[in-house]
């Protein structure tokens, strides 16, 4: 079964987070030294502005300090836990900064595009599973998923980039996500 925690040689990072949960300030400092460049990269990629990404990184590390005790209670690998905090914060910031029409229709019928149970099983190594599954999608749709994850594009922005109405974009992406899910759990 998919278990990223066992895949990552990140024992040190995990140990630092657990120490931070105990209020260990030097562990916090060490965690910052080892992970801030990656987490800053995540914020910068989404926010596209150094000053704002630096503000975001401050908030991210404050959240890490405050939430470290919840780390042990979930199944995240250490780096994915940190990156999720950074990405969610950066995306919350950018969504709050650029409010857009909230009501995108999500009720479109997706049932005619259910994953085909006879789809040929693909041998996937545990690693890069998501990459392999993205390759099973149309190139444009895989691009939309990547753009959303890496650059923090909203439905609105994806719709503009792919030149389709926003409701169409949402239906597209949701179908892609169902296919991805099917592939990831195959």
């Amino acid at each position: 079964m998919y278990n990223p925690r066992s895949m990552k040689a990140s024992g040190d990072i995990e140990e630092f987070i657990l120490q931070v949960a105990l209020g260990n300030r030097s562990a916090f400092r060490e965690l910052y030294v080892r992970t801030s460049a990656k987490l800053f990269g995540v914020c910068l990629r989404v926010l596209k502005d150094r000053a704002e990404a630096e503000d975001a990184l401050q908030e991210v590390f404050i959240k890490i300090w405050q939430r470290a005790s919840s780390f042990a209670a979930n199944d995240y690998s250490p780096m994915s836990w940190l990156i999720v905090i950074a990405r969610n914060h950066a995306i919350d910031r950018i969504r709050a900064r650029k409010p857009e029409a909230a009501d995108i229709d999500e009720m479109a019928d997706l049932s005619d595009d259910r994953p085909n149970p006879e789809a040929s099983a693909v041998e996937l190594s545990e690693r890069r599973r998501i990459e392999a599954c993205l390759e099973e999608l149309d190139a444009a749709r895989a691009d939309a998923v990547r753009g959303a994850y890496l650059d923090g594009y909203s439905y609105q922005e994806l719709a503009v980039r792919h030149d389709v109405p926003v409701n169409t974009m949402r239906t597209w992406l949701r179908r892609s996500l169902l296919k991805l899910k099917e592939c990831l759990t195959r």
Partner: peptide
């Protein structure tokens, strides 16, 4: 967890 694998493409800064 699944999407996290894509973060390999993000350059540190």
């Amino acid at each position: 967890q699944h999407l996290f694998e894509l973060s390999d493409e993000i350059d540190p800064a």
